[in-house]
Structures are given as structure tokens and as C-alpha cells.
Design a protein around this nucleic acid. Structure first.
Lengths: 144, 144
DNA sequence: ATAGGTGCAAATGGTTTGCGAAAAC
DNA sequence: GTTTTCGCAAACCATTTGCACCTAT
């Protein structure tokens, strides 16, 4: 099966350019939000009905390793992925237990906290995962 | 199978007192650190060779629901559990990618950050999961 | 030509669940 | 005696992997 190949990631560190990789990256770029593997697979399948979930997983690992995307867990058993942002991409995710929306929260305190950890514990940070669960303003009134 | 029952959790909100529940809670209390279900099961099996992993899982859910323990993910597919601490138990976990140890880090910045979220986003926080991955002072010099 | 990627189906690992036997109250 | 839990094995779900085939370079 031969496909149109979008080479707009050629300058990146991804070695062999394949149709599947182009497709996956362009979906992630357009989407600009957290996607899990299944959802990415669902969206990719609309353009390439033969793409397999294994390919999605393999390439997510590759993209992560090459620093193109970030992985977050957000308290789920599955993982979420999103394109890496430039600059201060440190943020806190607020996961609403009512509507399941994910709200991003940025604050200078996050950078300060990370700096404090590095200094006080001599710990060199490579990955930041910060999230809170609770109820957003629309979903207040928790069940109990 | 009849066992000695430790009733020291009778005042808690756990409805029927069973030998398995007493055992599991006492192990968690003695241990005072992050345990995953398998490790808790391993330790419980030494005292009660017949206890099943399903019972461990079911009771971990129960304890969590009743507010006796906290659950954390720490970037793993499995979950870790620990007894709930009194007062400002908010902390950040540092997960070392070298030796896999988990270091707890406390800072007033954490409370400030959470307060800021509640105020600025009108988000009512019910669960806090904060962790960083990286290399501890002994494991510095990441592989690449 | 060849290193490496892909699809498929099977394997894995943590967690959950249906069910009949047994314990708690 | 009734309600709930327990142990077992099977089911689940996200993810990973072995393998034969195919593609990019």
C-alpha cells in the first residue's frame, strides 16, 4: 500500500519517514490536546484504514524518545500524549471528576517548586507530572 | 478458615470486620510507605497463606473509599498505596529513574500552589498527585 | 540490497469480576 | 438467617512483542 507522504517532519530526529508517522504526527499537531493511543488510532484510521494500534504505540514511544511529544498519566491506567511545547511548558493539569475535562493551570510557583527540589535534594529532574483531581466550577457539589 | 481477628480498626468506617482486612491494614500501618497491590499481597501471604490477590484489591478499594489510605500512580501502570497521614500530608514524590527509590519532598510551595488553583480556577481539589522523575544525587549522570 | 517499519495475532501485566463456598453480624 | 466477603479462575483493558512481509533509503 503506497500513500502520500507528508515530509514536514523530515528535519526532526525521526529516522525513516513513513506514511504512518507523518499521519500520526499531523494528527497530533492539528489536535493540540491530550490524546490517548486509542483515540489517536481512531482518528488515524479515518485516513488510513489499515493502520494498526501497534504502530500507534510504537511510534508514540519513538516520538517520546525523540522529544517530540510529552506523555502524561493523569491518574488513568492509560497514557495521554501531546505535542511538546516550546519554552515553559511546565503546567499542572486539573482533572474534573464531574465532566472529565482537563484544565491546564500555569503558575510561577511550579517553576519555583521544581527549582527548590533540584536545590534541596540535589535531584536532577527529567520529567514533571503534576495533576489535581476535583470538581470544576460547573461541576461543584461533589457527590459526598 | 478461622483466624485471630485484630479489631483495632473497629472504630473506622469499615463495616464487617474480617481477618483479611485486619491483616492488610496492620501491614500498611507497620510499613508506613508506598506499597503496590502485589507487594502487599506478598507480605500478607506470609501471615495468611490463603489470602488472595483479589481480596487485596477489593480491600484497597474499600480502604481508599473510606479514606483510610491514599492512592498514587507515580507514572507506573500499577498503583501505590499508603496510609493517609494526618494534617498537611501534601507532598511531592521524587521518583529516581536510576535506583527507583521514591523520595518524599515537602514544601510550603505545594500548599500555596493548591490554594492558588482553588482560588484562580474555582476548582475544588479532592486529590493531589504530584511527582517528578529524574536522578537522585547517587544516580546522577543519566545514561544519555 | 538492506536496515528498519508495519500489520496481525498472541502474550503480558495490572486490575476487575462472576460465582459458589464460607464468614460476620 | 441474612448479608457480605472470600478464593478461585476467567475476564478485561491498555500495552507490548514475535514474526513474516513490506517500505524507505
Amino acid at each position: 500500500m503506497r500513500m502520500q507522504i507528508n515530509r514536514n517532519y523530515e528535519q526532526s530526529k525521526i529516522k525513516p519517514v513513513t506514511a504512518q508517522r507523518s499521519l500520526l504526527l499531523s494528527i497530533m499537531q492539528e489536535t493540540g490536546m491530550h490524546l490517548d493511543a486509542k483515540e489517536l488510532y481512531r482518528r488515524a484510521s479515518k485516513k488510513d484504514a489499515n493502520i494498526s494500534l501497534a504502530t500507534v504505540y510504537r511510534n508514540l514511544h519513538l516520538f517520546k524518545e525523540r522529544g517530540l511529544i510529552d506523555e502524561r498519566h493523569l491518574g488513568q491506567t492509560r497514557c495521554y500524549y501531546e505535542m511538546k511545547r516550546l519554552g515553559g511548558h511546565q503546567h499542572l493539569d486539573l482533572v474534573c471528576q464531574g465532566c472529565r475535562q482537563i484544565i491546564e493551570f500555569k503558575s510561577p510557583l511550579i517553576r519555583k517548586l521544581i527549582a527548590e527540589v533540584q536545590r534541596k535534594n540535589d535531584f536532577s529532574v527529567t520529567k514533571v507530572e503534576l495533576y489535581l483531581e476535583g470538581y470544576c466550577n460547573k461541576c461543584k457539589e461533589p457527590k459526598r
